[in-house]
Nucleic acid binder design. Structure first.
Length: 421
RNA sequence: GGAGGAGUGGCUGAGUGGUCGAAAGCGGCGGUCUUGAAAACCGUUGUGCAGCAAUGUACCGAGGGUUCGAAUCCUUCCUCCUCCGCCA
């Protein structure tokens, strides 16, 4: 949610921001409703003041045993006017809130302007891509061969877009989760375990609703949603809270499954584990002071990179262009890692700064050093997504004899297993 | 699922229709005192909205209603607690 004052004072800036995000929202209508709302407030508050004064006098008269029928009759008329104005304010408020909920966050000034991902800017690369001397099998082939990945089983029980991990595959995922949680915990992130089903209000708080409703699974009554990312429950832990400044930055990490309908994505990246309806992810969330949020965006990105550096998998980091930026984000880095079997980069982590967009929606505030209550900034970053990481390991750590070497950092978590197959 | 009970400011807790945004205590902040600290004493201490401001207005779990007027009455919902049932 943007500040209505920002929209009021810089409507053109907001319009440009939305346009650069390829988002059509009606800023002029918002401005008109805002105007109307303030007009009503003026009127109704004057009347309420009148009523409050008169009420005091009526009370005094009654106490003194005097007759107050005239004043009461007069106030009855005022009361009717107030009710009517209250009602129209309610309507304007509702309409305004609905429109505001659809206005995207503005891109930060450092974000490259561009219509789509082709305008993303690669800012650094890590590790060396070594082309193996043998033909590396894509993860779905090696996975089935080693009997650690069962795509047919997933399809049988849940339909296409679901996978089953078995034996060493399942253990590998568990090892990765433990490795990542331990890594982030050691760096000060509080590990939390959270519900995977949340209310609409919670989805609204981080900006998934109303815009992304079609991308999510929801209960039949429409009241509850399966989380598409741990960002939603973890960030919303601070919904409607006022945090003391000395508690910032808040750093949390959680492992959850993520549920995504991927409506309209049929036919794109459908092979293997790359695009699925349910996958596990370790996610980091930060709540920070506003003037520090862009520094934290860098450290949070570095924290996600640490996972891949530990695993010794080559990757690159890019800044998303405005057109590729999500609804709620002001700036976002993507980390893509190289997968040598399918011979392409896979998006494995997004690290975003939402500034105060989410905290406004959630009504999450903090009391700063001057005891003033204001909105902190939120950030989150995958640290990282398992359904992309496992394929990368199955491919990048594949040996010529069809076995998979377990990366060094995972071996303690695999109880001494050094290779699969 | 059944039966009861409760939701008031950072916390505890008073308030059952008329200056109640709300007593009191604790906590926080500022000060006096002190070499310093503690104690004691004095003062101060919620959030949103509208407004340049003065100020006004709203908020006592949430929504709706009754009334000239609601923290207080009615109603629906939510959450928590206790007991019973069920259960990983």
């Amino acid at each position: 949610m943007l500040d209505i004052k920002t929209i009021r004072e810089n409507p053109d800036l907001v319009k440009t921001g939305a346009l650069n995000k390829n988002d059509k929202c009606d800023i002029d209508k918002v401005l008109a409703l805002d105007e109307k709302r303030r007009e009503i407030i003026h009127q109704v508050e004057a009347l309420k003041g009148e009523r409050n004064t008169a009420s005091g006098e009526i009370a005094k008269k009654k106490k003194a045993g005097e007759n107050a029928d005239d004043a009461i009759a007069a106030m009855r008329a005022v009361g009717d006017k107030i009710s009517a104005l209250d009602e129209s304010q309610r309507q304007v408020d509702q309409e305004l809130n609905e429109l505001m909920a659809w206005i995207p966050n503005m891109p930060h000034e450092s974000v490259p302007v561009g219509a789509d991902e082709s305008a993303n800017v690669i800012i650094r690369e890590w590790g060396e891509i070594v082309k193996p001397k043998f033909k590396v099998l894509p993860h779905w082939e090696i996975g089935e061969k080693l009997d650690i990945l069962d795509l047919a089983g997933g399809a049988k029980i849940s339909g296409s877009g679901f996978y089953v991990l078995k034996g060493a595959g399942a253990k590998l995922q568990r090892a990765l989760i433990a490795y990542m949680l331990d890594l982030h915990s050691a760096d000060g992130f509080l590990e939390v375990s959270v519900p995977h089903i949340v209310t609409a209000d919670t989805m609204y708080g981080t900006g998934q609703l109303p815009k992304l409703a079609d991308d999510m699974y929801q209960t039949d009554d429409g009241g509850m949603f399966l989380i598409p990312t741990a960002e939603v429950p973890v960030t919303n832990l601070y919904k409607k809270e006022i945090i003391d400044h000395d508690k910032l930055p808040v750093k949390m990490v959680a492992h959850t499954p993520c549920f995504r309908r991927e409506a309209g994505a049929a036919g794109k990246d459908t092979r293997g584990m790359i695009r699925v309806h349910q996958f596990d992810k370790v996610e980091m969330v930060m709540i920070v002071k506003p003037d520090e949020s862009y520094d934290h965006l860098e450290t949070l990105t570095a924290q996600a990179e640490k996972v891949l550096q530990g695993l010794k998998i080559p990757y690159r980091v890019s800044t998303l262009a405005t057109g590729d930026l999500s609804f709620a984000a002001a700036k976002c880095y993507d980390i893509e890692l190289w997968s040598s079997g399918i011979e392409r980069y896979l998006e494995i982590s997004s690290i975003s700064n939402f500034e105060d967009f989410q905290t406004r929606r959630m009504q999450c505030r903090y009391r700063n050093e001057d005891r003033k209550v204001t909105y902190p900034h939120t950030l989150n970053g995958s640290g990282v997504a398992l359904a992309r990481l496992i394929p990368a390991i199955l491919e990048n750590y594949q040996n010529e004899d069809g076995t998979i070497t377990i990366p060094d950092v995972l071996q303690p978590y695999m109880h001494g297993t050094v290779r699969i197959g």
